[in-house]
């Protein structure tokens, strides 16, 4: 503990500034989109040369802290299904442990960095492609507006077709009734929880960007319940995951503390921006950022494989640059909307 506190002091001012700034960007993305942001931390740490267990463990500890802050904000909105949360926590806990054990196993084989990076490339690339395609076709919701979601009645949410099919096909008892009058087999929830937990433990992410779509499309819960329950769960899963990594010396407070310092402020700005800007406006940037992130991790890995430092640096610049560009787009669009709104109010008054 004390050696960890000393670790914060030992971190160079340049690195502290980098972590606070990166935390600000990640928090802004998390606050605005309600997901996607924390998964940038682990690849960035990997590219900065941290060992896989420290990059994943510190990434997970950062996710834990961010989830605590987000949950405090959403606590009063009443969007948490505790029954769903309890089953998800049980399944995710086992999944995280399997994922975490895999990291150490692969690390012992000397394969951890490469495989984690490859999984990132496919995951970020796949989700990025999906969101970009949806954004361009403009027929669905890529991000989650937490405040707007709170205003809608749960009964107004339509269950996606695929979730309906799963609910009708998999009817293995015990069946569970969730908020929004959703009837689903507990085994479906457990399977979703376990598989997202494995990814969470393996990649050191909260798993919100995988779990939220999974809860909506596989379990069929209304979006606001998915958001609230996910945040509630991340506090537990992130806490347990961080504890397990911490026991193995994988959590570096010198990384987590400054990241959290920046992200707490960024999350407030991003969250406030959702009240002003329609997420659809810049959803395409978000998908593009994920794609750029996957390309960056790929380039960085090729650089590591070839021993080419320029490629490694290019990968790092790309992953951070993409996040900074989207964060800047959010701030710019928010200010433009505010000024336009101010202009309209002035014109009406005149």
């Amino acid at each position: 503990m004390f050696s960890n506190l000393i670790g914060v002091v030992d971190t160079s001012p340049e690195m502290l500034a980098l972590f606070v700034g990166f935390g600000l960007v990640v928090g802004l993305l998390f606050g605005f989109f309600g997901m996607g942001g924390s998964f940038l931390v682990t690849p960035a740490l990997l590219m900065l040369g941290y060992p896989a267990s420290v990059a994943v463990g510190s990434g997970m500890a950062f996710v834990f802290g961010t989830a605590v802050i987000a949950t405090l904000k959403h606590h009063d909105l009443g969007q948490v299904d505790y029954k769903l949360g309890a089953i998800m926590i049980a399944g995710t806990t086992v999944g995280i442990e399997v994922g975490r054990a895999s990291v150490f196993y692969l690390e012992a084989l000397g394969l951890a960095d490469g495989i984690i990076s490859v999984v990132y490339v496919f995951l970020l690339g796949g989700i990025g492609l999906m969101i970009t395609r949806e954004a361009l076709s403009n027929d669905s919701d890529g991000g989650i507006d937490h405040d707007a979601a709170a205003d809608e009645d749960l009964s107004e949410y339509e269950i996606p077709d695929i979730a309906k099919r799963i609910q009708e096909t998999v009817r293995i008892p015990p069946m569970v009734t969730l908020r929004g009058d959703v009837h689903v087999s507990a085994w479906v929830i457990t399977a979703v929880a376990f598989s997202t937990g494995v990814l969470s433990g393996f990649l050191g992410v909260g798993g919100g960007f995988i779990r939220m779509p999974a809860m909506i499309y596989a379990i069929g819960v209304p979006t606001p319940v998915a958001v609230g329950t996910d945040l509630f769960e991340i506090v537990f899963s992130g806490g347990i995951g961080s504890y397990l990594y911490g026991q193995s010396g994988g959590v570096d407070l010198g990384i987590v503390a400054p990241l959290l310092f920046g992200s707490a402020l960024g999350a407030r700005i991003g969250s406030a921006a959702t009240a002003v800007v329609d997420a659809d406006d810049i959803k395409v940037y978000f998908g593009g950022m994920l794609l750029a992130g996957s390309v960056a991790v790929g380039i960085g890995e090729i650089g590591t494989y070839l021993g080419n430092e320029t490629l490694e640096t290019l990968g790092l610049v790309l992953v951070i640059g993409a996040a900074v560009v989207v964060a800047a787009a959010i701030v710019f669009t928010t200010l433009r909307s505010l000024r336009a709104s101010r202009g309209r109010v002035s014109a009406t008054v005149d």
């Binding site: 960890n4 506190l5 834990f64 802290g65 605590v68 806490g239 961080s242 911490g246 407070l253 503390a257």
Partner: peptide
């Protein structure tokens, strides 16, 4: 260590 992160948050 985890408590410190919780308190900081």
């Amino acid at each position: 260590l985890i408590g410190a992160i919780l308190v900081e948050a």
